[in-house]
Amino acid sequence: MSDQFLDGDLRSSGAEADAKRTVQPAGPGEGPSPDALLDKPTSIWRLGMRRFFRRKLGVLGLAIVTLLTLVALFAPVLAPYDPIQQLDRVEEVQRRDPPSSEHLLGLDSNARDQLSRIIWGARISLPLGVSIVMVAIMIGAAIGAIAGYFGGAVDSVLMRIMDVILGFPALLLAVAIAYVLGPQIRNVLIAVAVVTLPQYARVMRSSVLSIKEIDYVAASQALGASSWRMLRTRILPNSLTPLIVLGTLGIAGAILEAAALSFLGLGAQPPQPEWGAMLAQEYTLIQTYPHLVIYPGLAIMITVLGFNLLGDGLRDAFDPSLNE
């Protein structure tokens, strides 16, 4: 979702005043004054990003995520070895060799270069986490929007289904779904998306409930706009901000849950270099070969930390109620 789209959308509604209404005045020294806003409409995104870049931890999270994304994109170039090549077949090395100048993070139990596996692992974990959240947002947002917009029985039925899903421990439910569907990365995506979509549905529903009462929505309705058009052009675009913030934070959780499922043997299958699966294969060796456990663990930790910091930063920037 680009700034231009949001800006354009808000302007195209012909409701600058409404757009201004959605922008909350920032604290002293943060962003333009209300007077300036009246002179030149500033999008919620511009304001938010300005606030975001003033928060060091959020910027650190963005840097980590950017770095990890680059690592994932350029894994074939960055990884010194093939992540599934057993190096004891071609070199004078032994499996579980500790870190050395040739193999910076050592070799795993199948004599594969661990650094290369962790680098390639970013290609699985990052897209998986993002995909899970995107799927969950798409489905959750649709459910929440329909429930919030139509209300009544539709709202009750949809939200009770969401409550049922929320009533279970997320990981346990994900394990059950992944077990039933079979151990595959695709099924991890489905399992984690299913258990996380209720939170997006609820947030979307809340947004829709508040936005649909705003004048420009009522005006559109009075002019005869269809429900679908109302949802698509008036309500959804103005409800996305909290979803994006929540989604960024959700990526961290999704990566963790996906790693947990792989750890339990329900996700990536050998020899895929997925971090959770790498941990699962080696965790019993933590006393004797700690490097086999520490590095994949660190990869997960740094990634989750990055997304958490980024998500916190976005939330602080876009949630006016948290402003100083």
């Binding site: 899903i165 009533g167 039933v180 569907l181």
Partner: peptide
């Protein structure tokens, strides 16, 4: 697996 899925779903609904 489908049977287990059906049972799990039923259990979910009943419990919830």
């Amino acid at each position: 697996r489908r049977l287990i899925a059906a049972a799990a779903a039923a259990a979910l609904v009943i419990t919830a």
